[in-house]
Design a protein around this nucleic acid. Sequence first.
DNA 1: CAGAAAAGCTTGTAGTTACAACTATTGTCG
DNA 2: CGACAATAGTTGTAACTACAAGCTTTTCTG
Lengths: 172, 172
Amino acid sequence: MSEEAISERASAASAVAAPPRTTQTTPHGEAWGALTRTHAAVTQRLQEALAQGDYPPLPWYEVLSTVAEAPEQRMRMGDLAEVLVITRGGLTKLVDRLVKAGLIERTFCESDRRVSYATLLPAGRDLLAEMRPVVVGELEVAFSANLSEAEAGRLTETLDRVRGSACEIGSA
Amino acid sequence: MSEEAISERASAASAVAAPPRTTQTTPHGEAWGALTRTHAAVTQRLQEALAQGDYPPLPWYEVLSTVAEAPEQRMRMGDLAEVLVITRGGLTKLVDRLVKAGLIERTFCESDRRVSYATLLPAGRDLLAEMRPVVVGELEVAFSANLSEAEAGRLTETLDRVRGSACEIGSA
DNA sequence: CAGAAAAGCTTGTAGTTACAACTATTGTCG
DNA sequence: CGACAATAGTTGTAACTACAAGCTTTTCTG
């Protein structure tokens, strides 16, 4: 212990072995509890790793990564918000920060002057190239270590199925 | 359109059918993307349902629910923060709000005067009883509809395995 | 073609969260 | 026993996010 910090987070000692006493005690309730805790734990791990390398926070990475894989390295704000599952208002300000940092540029559509694109700049591409190994590395530790590729595939399929039913607007 | 609102959130129309083009394109990367999006989608659904019934937000429910299942309907602040996977500082303020609402009481430990407990009050127990069906109902829609209990069990097991490896402090 | 409705994005405001520093109590040694 | 470290919570500050209202452009309709 010397250059340690870890701010506070959680002691993370008994958390692993702690009995998964969740909200309810039904199989589905357990599954939701496991999903929540796993998401939180992995997210923490990723953000910690990024902070340790003096990189921007995780949302920045997700924007850069998503835009980088889009057709022309650009995406409509609305689509981006939808993929990242955040509000449009939130995305506007998030992209503002990326623009101010010189990683993203706002471009506009000729045919429809309402839409604006978030377009990746070279600096953003470079930063992404630096951040990706960090994120992928942490994910390897979290996933690859204990999950075969086949299991990962099944997990993805199952989760997507849940998401599918969760997205059906229950307005009726 | 009359008493509608839904603020903004996401259009949630093409989100379901959208190709899961995630961060990377490895099976594990896909799994992480699916986990993130599913968590966000279900959380949104739950919060929307709670807001619609004029109930407090989801974090309140999680505190009440967790404390209610603890031995003496009380929990040490630190343990509670660990289970909920939020920071201690954040929990202090979250519990402050619950105390102000008369749902939780702070009690203290005789043998160790540092620790304080979050103790469930009758009003908290009653509110929990009201909120639980709402939350459970939404989870049923999200999970039960498309997942057998056996699948839910496998999902829980898999997620817990991932969480386990994610929690191992990578200090070494 | 004018007016209303819808779509796309931004901005103002408030609430929530994390991070870091601080206080108080307990445990450890010299 | 007295100083140092570790543990448990709280608090101050800054950043992020959601919500709701607003603006502009496009589409629909009579």
